[in-house]
Design a protein around this nucleic acid. Structure first.
Lengths: 334, 334
DNA sequence: ATGCATTGTTCACACGTGTGCACAACCGGA
DNA sequence: TCCGGTTGTGCACACGTGTGAACAATGCAT
């Protein structure tokens, strides 16, 4: 090792510019009391030494670290992975740093929050996390602002950003009716979250308005293998159109349908519009939750909450939209 | 807000236990000089108040934050997403916290590292990142230990953990020959990393040893749509077996082959063994890089490097293995 | 020349923690 | 009683930064 000298500190910048350390701090933070001439000198010195302020020390002093905790689940679901990527990028643009933990189990989630607290994060974003009860409780105990993304289970005073699942269900119903379906089924997931229930409720309610009702229903874990084993039972009900709680379920259903009867299958709609949905092999009509916008809004909300003593609670609903593809084109039916 | 009291500090624990703050610190850190009796009293007080040490302050004092920077690319690739998830879990088990940034572009990567430096991370893990040159340079400048995962472009003194791509290529060649193929092609990606080149080199070298050579070759971005548009050209070469640099390419190739000639196609092998490969619709034979082990080793290496003044350089190669499925079963050929 | 406002800079403290050193308490041996 | 050794605890400093208050310098009016 050439030099084991530590990172440059603001003291050294001050030394080089023949000036006190506090002036360096003020010059770089844009304090108007600093003359333009010294500011230039300070900036030159800082650039020359490659000075980067120690954000840990700053965080300790300012009681604000610029770190945002992100609790995420099941990154094997491409939808979650994509959401995380967008979150990270947008947080970065706001000069916030994401400390990421996985909260797959109840105690895992609790443990994750505890770690985040220790690191004095400025806010917590929980991404489609189950165990939101634990997370809400822990954040409340630690007085940290919390934003649930794609979940709104908590009590009235927790903020969330999520899609309008109820409306999405109704949009799907309209689309299927428009394309000629007259009998319908729903393929549910195994979660008991409110947004999942809303999808189904919005779907059936709209169907009822048009004079239809569900002729079939099945549930499965969000897992290709299990979904495929459940699918035949659902297909057997003979419904002309099936709405799935999730793209994963929809892909399994398509695969199963292809195997059972290669030349005719019901109209199928998924949820999440993952990139596979666009593959010609599936061409799956799917609900897009507008993750782009959802993550933007989430980050902006988090950013706004950092300063506020999290007095404000914001509960925002994002409009989803349908992306129609071959899986619901009328001619694909029997 | 009921109380806007901040987090509990060690001072309050000391107060409650009628003891000095330093004793609290020592008791909790397991210093042998503390009597068993006071230790119990301190622990009781800490538990009662729910005291969690402020890791930011500790980090400032100890010059070691317990934060590990993770630079990642393209989370839309399920392979990367899965790797990230494993990394996060295994870092957590070692009580390290991952600060995650996305480094898709050159200046993005550089920027990410700069942020990591500011946060005084103890080490940096770069996950299959392009622009490793920038990352290596930045980490060297900041004197931070760096581990490249699945990349070994850098100079001799940077540590890495990666799969034995050369050997994987040779395993694939053997497998295809065993299953009766006599003519071969390679479907390359658009990256110029050494591991990518190794896959192809290991493949062709083994073929040459057995008296065969490549009859076709194509390259595409790692993207389903583009890969599908390139695929017909590659299939036209008539090779009986095709090795793809990536599962994404392999799926596109399978889709294209299905469309062109539904009842006969070459043997196809992918790389990464992503979860889709197991889906019956694809049943893709693929090389598994043993991500489980790769991430474990990476985290252990990072953990070991934290204390050391990163004098040690460790360069570790993980053995890959082949998962054979229907896409290379002999009867699937024409 | 002295008082006062303005402007630019420095001093000193605080954030919450870990730890070297000094120190108190106690005990046993002379 | 005095001394040396052992054991447990407290004082005070350091980590690197931001910032209120004090202070030097200058200009202006009296």
């Amino acid at each position: 090792m050439d030099k084991l000298k530590k990172q440059v500190r603001s003291f050294e910048v001050a030394e080089l510019a023949n000036i006190s350390r506090s002036t360096v701090s003020r010059a770089l933070s844009g304090d108007p009391r600093i003359s333009e001439e010294t500011r230039a000198r300070v900036e030159a010195a800082a650039a020359k030494l490659g000075y980067q302020p120690n954000l840990i020390a700053r965080g300790l002093k300012n009681q604000s670290t610029g770190i945002v905790g992100v609790v995420v689940t099941d990154l094997d679901n491409p939808y979650h992975a994509h959401a995380l990527q967008l979150l990270i990028e947008k947080l970065g643009a706001k000069r916030l740093a994401p400390l990421v933990f996985v909260g797959d189990t109840a105690e895992g989630a609790e443990n994750a929050i505890a770690r985040l607290m220790s690191y004095q994060v400025d806010a917590v974003i929980a991404l489609a996390a189950p165990f939101s009860k634990q997370i809400v409780a822990a954040c409340r105990a630690g007085k940290k602002p919390l934003i649930l993304m794609n979940r709104y289970d908590g009590p009235d005073d927790v903020s969330f950003v999520c899609g309008d699942s109820h409306r999405a269900g109704s949009i799907v119903a309209d689309h299927l009716i428009e394309n000629g379906a007259t009998s319908f089924a729903y393929f549910a997931g195994d979660d008991t979250t409110s947004i999942s229930a809303d999808r189904e409720h919005g779907f059936t309610q709209r169907l009822a308005e048009k004079g239809f009702e569900l002729t079939g229903r099945a549930a499965s874990r969000y897992d290709h293998a299990q979904a495929m084993s459940v699918a035949p039972m659902l297909l057997a009900c003979g419904a002309e159109a099936i709405f799935c709680a999730n793209d994963t379920l929809a892909f399994a259903l398509l695969d199963a349908a292809r195997t059972m009867s290669p030349f005719g299958r019901p109209l199928i709609v998924g949820y999440d519009n993952s990139s596979l949905a666009a593959w010609p092999a599936y061409a799956l009509t799917s609900v897009d939750q507008n993750l782009e916008k959802m993550t933007s809004v989430t980050v902006e909300t988090a950013h706004a909450m950092v300063g506020d003593a999290h007095g404000g609670v914001s509960r925002i609903v994002i409009e989803p939209y349908l992306v129609a593809r071959g899986s619901t084109s009328p001619q694909s039916r029997t």
